[in-house]
Amino acid sequence: DLSALRVEEVQNVINAMQKILECPICLELIKEPVSTKCDHIFCKFCMLKLLNQKKGPSQCPLCKNDITKRSLQESTRFSQLVEELLKIICAFQLDTGLEYANSYNFAKKENNSPEHLKDEVSIIQSMGYRNRAKRLLQSEPENPSLQETSLSVQLSNLGTVRTLRTKQRIQPQRTSVYIELGSDSSEDTVNKATYCSVGDQELLQITPQGTRDEISLDSAKKAACEFSETDVTNTEHHQPSNNDLNTTEKRAAERHPEKYQGSSVSNLHVEPCGTNTHASSLQHENSSLLLTKDRMNVEKAEF
């Protein structure tokens, strides 16, 4: 173990290094160091905050020279020094078990990766560091076993998940096959086929009936047209017969005018059967003409 005197000496050296690497504005270890034209180094955030307070150039807090945003430059070497100082402080805390008085939040800088452990060898070769390295080497064999167990647990979990997924996939297939086998029997399929065939026959029977009705309507229309044509021909046949009657009536009127007047009046009210309204109107006109002729003949006879 380190003596108290040596611990104090190391602590004083760390404090001196820390004062050199402090920012003059925030009085902390410089984060993202930036250098000016006057070779003074500050935190990048502190300098941008200072420049944004005034429009135009501002003055350096140490030498009062003008500073602009374009004049600022990043210093990589200074950032490396800060990183190495942080590593020294971490090693000091691990070796002594004491917390550094002016320690900052170094938890963000710590890294437990194997590459980081290899890099620590180049920091300080001390008894405390050696003991700590031995402890780490002793704890390393235990870690692979834990990793193997965790991997086995994960693989077993994956296997159970896969088996569950396969079961879920197989179950719908089985149910679907069961439904297909038990849903419709052979008799049901035959009945469905016969039902479809009967429906098709009914459709075939319905369509000819409609065509037959249309044919019957067409035949009825044709018969009505033929009947009207026969009526017209009958009226045409009746007209010459009426003319013959008129000639006979004229002759009778010349011989017996008194008797014919009474008979002509009675004939006005008689309509021949089986004739249309057109034929009756023609008869009325003929009878009126005959009456006028008879009157003329009677007057001539009187004179």
Rank of each mutant, 00 (worst) to 15 (best):
Asp1Lys: 07
Asp1Thr: 04
Leu2Val: 15
Ser3Asp: 03
Leu5Trp: 02
Leu5Ala: 10
Arg6Met: 04
Arg6Phe: 04
Val7Gly: 10
Glu8Phe: 00
Glu8Thr: 08
Glu9Ser: 10
Glu9Trp: 05
Asn15Pro: 15
Ala16Asp: 07
Gln18Pro: 13
Gln18Val: 10
Lys19Ala: 09
Lys19Met: 04
Lys19Phe: 01
Ile20Trp: 10
Leu21Met: 08
Glu22Phe: 08
Cys23Leu: 15
Pro24His: 08
Pro24Phe: 00
Ile25Glu: 02
Ile25Thr: 09
Cys26Lys: 15
Leu27Thr: 09
Leu27Pro: 10
Glu28Val: 09
Glu28Arg: 12
Glu28Phe: 10
Lys31Ser: 13
Glu32Gln: 11
Pro33Ser: 09
Pro33Glu: 12
Val34Trp: 07
Ser35Met: 05
Lys37Pro: 02
Lys37Glu: 00
Cys38Val: 15
Cys38Ser: 14
Asp39Cys: 03
Asp39Glu: 03
His40Ala: 11
His40Asp: 07
Ile41Lys: 05
Ile41Gly: 08
Ile41Thr: 01
Phe42Pro: 15
Cys43Phe: 15
Cys43His: 13
Cys43Pro: 15
Lys44Arg: 06
Lys44Phe: 02
Lys44Ile: 05
Phe45Arg: 12
Phe45Thr: 08
Cys46Gly: 15
Cys46Trp: 15
Leu48Asp: 13
Lys49Asn: 02
Leu51Val: 06
Leu51Lys: 02
Asn52Thr: 08
Asn52Cys: 04
Gln53Cys: 07
Lys54Tyr: 10
Lys54Ser: 09
Lys55Leu: 03
Gly56Phe: 10
Gly56Cys: 12
Gly56Asp: 13
Pro57Lys: 02
Pro57Asn: 02
Gln59Val: 14
Cys60Thr: 15
Cys60Ser: 15
Pro61Ile: 03
Pro61Arg: 09
Lys64Pro: 15
Lys64Glu: 03
Thr68Phe: 01
Thr68Arg: 06
Lys69Asn: 07
Arg70Ser: 12
Ser71Ile: 13
Leu72Asn: 00
Gln73Lys: 11
Glu74Cys: 03
Glu74Thr: 00
Ser75Gly: 13
Ser75Gln: 00
Thr76Glu: 02
Arg77Leu: 07
Phe78Gln: 13
Phe78Glu: 02
Phe78Ser: 04
Ser79Ile: 12
Gln80Ile: 08
Val82Gly: 04
Val82Leu: 04
Val82Met: 03
Glu84Asn: 08
Glu84Arg: 08
Leu86Trp: 03
Lys87Gln: 04
Lys87Phe: 02
Lys87Asp: 10
Ile88Phe: 11
Ile89Pro: 09
Ile89Tyr: 10
Ile89Arg: 10
Ile89Thr: 11
Ile89Asn: 10
Cys90Thr: 04
Ala91Thr: 06
Ala91Trp: 01
Phe92Pro: 15
Leu94Ala: 06
Leu94Asn: 14
Leu94Cys: 02
Leu94Thr: 11
Thr96Asp: 12
Gly97Asp: 10
Glu99Asp: 10
Tyr100Arg: 15
Ala101Pro: 02
Ala101Val: 04
Ser103Gly: 03
Ser103Thr: 09
Phe106Pro: 12
Lys109Asn: 06
Lys109Phe: 15
Asn111Ile: 04
Ser113Ala: 15
Pro114Thr: 06
Pro114Gly: 11
Glu115Gly: 03
Leu117Tyr: 06
Leu117Pro: 04
Glu120Arg: 05
Val121Asn: 04
Ser122Gly: 03
Ser122Val: 05
Ile123Tyr: 07
Ile123His: 14
Ile123Cys: 04
Ile124Thr: 08
Ile124Ser: 02
Gln125Ile: 07
Gln125Thr: 08
Ser126Cys: 11
Met127Ile: 06
Gly128Tyr: 02
Gly128Arg: 15
Tyr129Ala: 09
Tyr129Gly: 14
Tyr129Val: 10
Arg130Gly: 10
Asn131Asp: 05
Asn131Cys: 10
Ala133Asp: 04
Ala133Met: 07
Lys134Pro: 09
Lys134Val: 12
Lys134Ile: 02
Arg135Gln: 04
Arg135Lys: 11
Leu136Glu: 14
Leu137Ser: 06
Leu137Cys: 10
Gln138Trp: 02
Gln138Ala: 04
Gln138Ser: 06
Glu140Leu: 07
Glu140His: 10
Pro141Glu: 06
Glu142Asn: 05
Asn143Thr: 05
Pro144Tyr: 05
Pro144Glu: 07
Ser145Met: 02
Ser145Thr: 08
Leu146Asp: 14
Leu146Cys: 04
Leu146Ser: 10
Leu146Tyr: 02
Glu148Gln: 07
Glu148Thr: 02
Thr149Cys: 05
Thr149Pro: 08
Ser150Leu: 01
Leu151Cys: 14
Ser152Phe: 07
Val153Trp: 01
Val153Ala: 10
Leu155Gln: 13
Ser156His: 08
Asn157Thr: 05
Leu158Asp: 10
Gly159Thr: 11
Thr160Arg: 03
Val161Thr: 09
Val161Gln: 12
Arg162Leu: 01
Arg162Ile: 06
Thr163Leu: 01
Thr163Trp: 11
Thr163Asn: 12
Leu164Phe: 10
Leu164Asn: 14
Arg165Gly: 09
Thr166Tyr: 00
Lys167Asn: 11
Lys167Phe: 00
Arg169Gln: 11
Leu181Phe: 00
Glu187Gly: 02
Asp188Gly: 03
Thr189Leu: 14
Thr189Asn: 11
Asn191Asp: 01
Lys192Val: 00
Cys196Phe: 00
Ser197Val: 01
Val198Cys: 00
Asp200Trp: 00
Gln201Val: 07
Gln201Tyr: 02
Gln201Phe: 01
Glu202Cys: 00
Glu202Phe: 03
Leu203Pro: 15
Leu203Ile: 06
Leu204Tyr: 10
Ile206Phe: 01
Ile206Leu: 05
Ile206Asn: 07
Ile206Glu: 15
Thr207Tyr: 00
Pro208Ser: 11
Gln209Gly: 01
Gln209Glu: 12
Gly210Ser: 07
Thr211Tyr: 01
Arg212Leu: 02
Arg212His: 15
Asp213Thr: 01
Asp213Pro: 14
Glu214His: 15
Glu214Arg: 02
Ser216Arg: 03
Ser216Tyr: 00
Ser216Met: 02
Leu217Gly: 13
Leu217Met: 13
Asp218Arg: 01
Asp218Leu: 01
Ser219His: 05
Ala220Asn: 02
Ala220Arg: 01
Lys221Gln: 01
Lys222His: 08
Ala223Ser: 11
Glu226Leu: 00
Glu226Ala: 02
Glu229Ser: 09
Glu229Asp: 02
Thr230Val: 04
Thr230Ala: 03
Val232Lys: 13
Val232Asn: 13
His237Tyr: 08
Asn242Arg: 00
Asn243Pro: 07
Asp244Ile: 02
Asp244Phe: 00
Leu245Pro: 02
Asn246Phe: 01
Thr247Pro: 07
Thr247Glu: 14
Glu249Ile: 11
Lys250Ile: 10
Arg251Phe: 14
Ala252Leu: 10
Glu254Asn: 06
Arg255Ser: 14
His256Ser: 09
His256Phe: 03
Glu258Arg: 04
Lys259Met: 01
Lys259Asn: 04
Tyr260Thr: 12
Gln261Cys: 13
Gly262Glu: 07
Gly262Cys: 01
Val265Glu: 06
Ser266Cys: 09
Ser266Leu: 01
Asn267His: 14
Leu268Trp: 00
His269Tyr: 02
His269Phe: 11
Val270Lys: 01
Pro272Asp: 13
Pro272Gly: 04
Pro272Thr: 08
Cys273Met: 02
Thr275Arg: 08
Thr277Gln: 14
His278Tyr: 01
His278Arg: 14
Ala279Thr: 14
Ser280Phe: 00
Ser280Thr: 09
Ser281Tyr: 11
Leu282Ser: 11
Gln283His: 12
Gln283Ile: 00
His284Gln: 13
His284Pro: 10
His284Lys: 13
Glu285Pro: 01
Asn286Gly: 10
Ser287Leu: 00
Leu289Arg: 13
Leu289Val: 04
Leu291Phe: 00
Lys293Thr: 04
Arg295Asn: 05
Arg295Asp: 07
Arg295Phe: 14
Met296Leu: 13
Met296Arg: 15
Asn297Ile: 12
Asn297Val: 14
Asn297Phe: 00
Val298Thr: 15
Lys300Thr: 00
Ala301Val: 04
Ala301Leu: 01
Phe303Cys: 14
